[in-house]
Design a protein around this nucleic acid. Sequence first.
RNA 1: GGUGACGUGACCGAGUGGCUAGGUAGAGGUCUGCAAAACCUCCUACGGCGGUUCGAAUCCGCCCGUCACCUCCA
Length: 523
Amino acid sequence: MSLSLYNTLTRKKEEFQPVHAPQVGVYLCGPTVYSEAHLGNARGPVVFDVLTRYLRHLKYQVRYVRNITDVGHLESDADTGEDKMEKAARAARIEPMQVAQHFANRYRQHMMALGCLPPDIEPQASGHITEQIGMIEEIIANGFGYEVNGSVYFDVPNYNEAHRYGKLSNRSIEDQLGGTRDTLAGQDEKRSPLDFALWKKASPEHIMRWPSPWGEGFPGWHLECSAMSRKYLGNLSDIHGGGLDLMFPHHECEIAQCQASDTGTDESRVWMHNNMITVNGTKMSKSLGNFVLLGDLFQGPTGPLAQGYSPMVVRFFLLQAHYRSPVDVSDDALQAARKGYRKLMNGLRLLDKLVVGSSLSVAGENDAEPATDNQQPTTKPGDADLRKLTADLYTGLDDDLNTARSIASLFNLLRKFNTLATTPAALADVSAAALTEAVAAYRTLVVDILGLQDEPRANAEQLLELTLGFYSEAKNGAKEAKESAEDATPYYAKIDQIRAALKEQGIVIKDTKAGVEWAYSEE
RNA sequence: GGUGACGUGACCGAGUGGCUAGGUAGAGGUCUGCAAAACCUCCUACGGCGGUUCGAAUCCGCCCGUCACCUCCA
């Protein structure tokens, strides 16, 4: 079995072949940090987290790059003065970089909560202005860029002569010219409406600006990824990804920039695009205002949802669908996911008992029949079924990262585990080897690859209060018994038992006039 | 207008032409002091109309419907 991935560039599933095995370079277009991340923003990171986890499981040496775009993109072509970052900064009366830092911090928190391992490199666009300028110079030198009034544009028609602009999104420039909508303002500098900015001259009020050969300005909207991918993953990375809505123009422009610069490649061998998250069938987006912010979602009711859902439930929910399918958010769907997630976690907790139970039953078997051969049979009748279920775990993942199928396989294996746990006869029917293998595979897939962890639902202090409640009841019982001259011994026994049990946990009970209190033991 | 998806049982959601997806909900049962969990059984669908085929949810055509991108967007 080997991993195959759907490549947007070739429009088919391809067996994954690293450019330089065993190294694998993965790039995911990260957030523009001018606002809170919403659920839709989480899908790509979760999918790519599973992808990189799985690649590592397959023994590849992965370098995972996920950028932070902290150079604000302009609100529109027409708006030459203010960009998103500056707008947010002005609203909050702080530095644009403070805005970027704030939302980058929030983003990392949310991603961590969702179980996404931090990327190996998290480059910031603002820290790679030099690299971006260098790339622009190459593009100009190669005849695919031109300067006008301190701005530099990418010459799409000219580029299209030598290469094909639109190879990723399957568009032709004729179609795009024909279908151009209302002429946008601020386009007069461009030779063609299809051209896009590589460098923009900063207007006097523009705060985020850097010096360049063309004067003070800031880099274009697609350049940072091309420049940073090249810097950290070389001229040709293995996998480049993002949301479907980034395919055009963002990724298309990235490819053009790489081909037009000295990079001279498609930037990445495989291009992957995750589908959108929808609300009532419509794409969740900032502009439509139908978004669910991650911070709100984890906390409680928000937008179309009547209640909150924990990060792990959200992660499981996202992984229950294939990444190229749209996913619709609703309370019904999330609640169903929550139950499924908990079922999977209960299974995780069952695993240890299962192995212990197995060895015990094996020992008992041998004790009962000391005369029989002491050697454990290497295979038993139940092994075939168990091994089949185990092997099936990865068929989904191997097929274009189909987490939905692998999760279905997990539930099938879990049913088997539950049967084994409750049916000694069935347990005796499988060999320790097959069982150990199955248990390890389940745990590896759930924890290491899908990145699902048990979320503690019970609060330790609340559980302690509960215990202290029973303690108080025993105390009262003892008191009443004493007053009515009855035997209080059973109550004292219970009291002592609770005190001893808690003491083992490092907790001492203190009977005060105000009531029962506790403290950490100082011993 | 161009490009590209998608329409699966009560809900969510996989699906490589023939073999049970899975989760949730519902019904019945086993187990159980009660309950929960677990297990077993059931409900078992593929937008419509044609076509290809021994056989199609799966391939082809048309129609209906939904969505996405073409403008910042994961």
